[in-house]
Simulated scan of single mutants.
Amino acid sequence: MKEPLLIADARLPDGTRVDVSIVNGRIDAIGPDLRVENDVVRENGNGALLLPGFVEGHTHLDKTMWGMRWYRNEVGPKLTDRIENERRFRAQSGHDAATASLALARAFLQAGTTRLRTHVDIDTDAGLKHLEGVLKTRDTLRDVLDMQTVAFPQSGMLKREGTVTLLDEALRAGADVLGALDPALIDGDPVASLNATFDLATRHQKPIDIHLHEPAEIGAFTLKLLLDRVEALGMQGRVVISHAFCLGALAPRERDPLLDRLALLNVALLTTAPASVSVPPLAACIEKGVTLFGGNDGIRDTWNPFGSPDMLERAMLIGMRYDLRRDDALAIAFDCVSHTAARGCGFADYGLHVGARADLVLVDAETVAHAVAARPVRKLVVANGRIVARDGVLVEGV
């Protein structure tokens, strides 16, 4: 049983001053001048902007070197170079997914993220070692961080014999989602690769989140095959396509029919809004009714020296990549790491309403757009009804 909590005098994004009553980890009431029992824990919001807890839609907690020594990146330019380099480094260095994932997960919490989807490498050399480490982190933080784990075959489904069997074991061991990677360019056989993916997901009744880096026409071909399987197997609303670079490289006459099918089949898209490659078109996705949400991808690892566990920063980068300048447009960027991300990942009971899980962030900002642009220190972070961070610092015991 959690202690009841009252956050007094906070300000909703529309400017309304409210109190928020939290009971048993849920928002019990929200409105001005709430009357509550005397034994409630009280926090004064002092008019700070009240936001829902942030959602990280795509990261790789198991790979990170957050808080560790700097990794000198001298890897080659190809995707396969990065895959092999990472596998070699992790084996030789003894990189521990449990320690690494816990450090980064706590940093996410400190910055206001209360829901998170992480992809975890399932590897024929390491077996389920990385997943076991991340599941320890999920268990350690289970009361405050709602974490989904994706069993991710970083080398593809078919390229390394035994991967499908390991993925089967990973789903039995507690992974929430089945991952996949570039069926044409990595596996070399998109039909067989997708068949294996959907067969495994169907047997375990698990959703799918597939990395699709394949460019232009190749990516479009794979995407059509994938959508055919979603429709045939009734997996509407249970598939996410991460990256989907191809959709940013196609002409509208080729792209728009794919967007129409994505919307019809309720297949969501994830973007990290990278500056260096094409990205799915945000405006066209909104117009067509396609769910497009945001995430960081890897943070400070052998692939990438960049990144931060701050979803307001990711919203800012989404705003910059899509040239979002107006306040209402920046609110869309924030939605990509809040409401839309929760919907895309299937996180339930999300938001600032009665009955929602009490995941709240208070910041000194005038508007949502101001929060995205300025990325102020988090004055207060509440996760599942529990105060986990104050003034940018985790509270003791988290």
Rank of each mutant, 00 (worst) to 15 (best):
F347Y: 12
V144T: 14
D256P: 01
D125V: 15
S193W: 04
G15P: 10
L360Q: 01
L194K: 06
R238G: 01
P32G: 09
V120I: 13
L49I: 07
V41I: 13
T118A: 04
D123L: 03
E214W: 11
A196L: 03
A232V: 02
A268V: 08
L51C: 03
H95Q: 02
D176F: 04
N296C: 14
L200A: 06
Q205A: 13
G31H: 10
R115V: 00
A244L: 07
E132W: 04
R160L: 12
D301I: 10
V377N: 06
Y71R: 12
D323M: 14
T202Q: 10
A284I: 05
T118I: 01
K129C: 00
V361Y: 08
V177S: 03
D391L: 09
T149N: 00
N304D: 11
V177T: 11
G127P: 02
A383I: 00
T124I: 14
D187A: 00
D146I: 01
G298R: 08
E287T: 13
I208Y: 01
L5C: 06
S308C: 12
D39I: 08
I332P: 09
P215V: 12
E396C: 04
N24G: 11
T113E: 04
G298D: 14
L269M: 07
V372Y: 11
A331E: 15
R138D: 00
V150L: 06
G346T: 08
H213G: 03
H370W: 07
K159L: 13
T113C: 11
R106V: 04
A275M: 11
T202W: 01
W66F: 14
C336R: 10
V240A: 05
S101M: 07
R87M: 10
A111F: 09
E84L: 15
A263E: 06
N384H: 13
E313H: 13
G289D: 03
T114A: 01
C345P: 00
M311H: 11
H339Q: 05
T64W: 02
L250D: 06
L250C: 08
D310V: 11
F108C: 02
D187G: 00
R26H: 14
R229K: 12
A192H: 02
T137G: 13
W303P: 10
P376Q: 03
A10V: 15
D9Y: 06
T114V: 05
R326E: 14
D328R: 14
D189P: 07
F334H: 15
R17A: 12
L292C: 10
A389V: 08
V36E: 03
G179M: 10
A103K: 13
W66L: 07
R115T: 08
R314A: 04
Q236A: 14
R300C: 12
T271S: 14
E214P: 12
V239C: 05
L212C: 05
V164C: 09
E43D: 00
D359P: 05
T140W: 10
G94M: 01
A98H: 13
V23F: 11
A365N: 03
A383S: 12
L362S: 01
P274E: 03
T124Q: 04
A91D: 11
G307P: 10
T99G: 01
G219Q: 07
R11G: 07
E396P: 01
R106N: 00
V368M: 13
G344S: 08
H60E: 00
L225H: 13
A10P: 03
G57F: 02
L104K: 00
A201M: 04
A268W: 05
V18L: 09
P257A: 05
E214H: 09
L282R: 06
T118K: 01
D121N: 12
A315D: 08
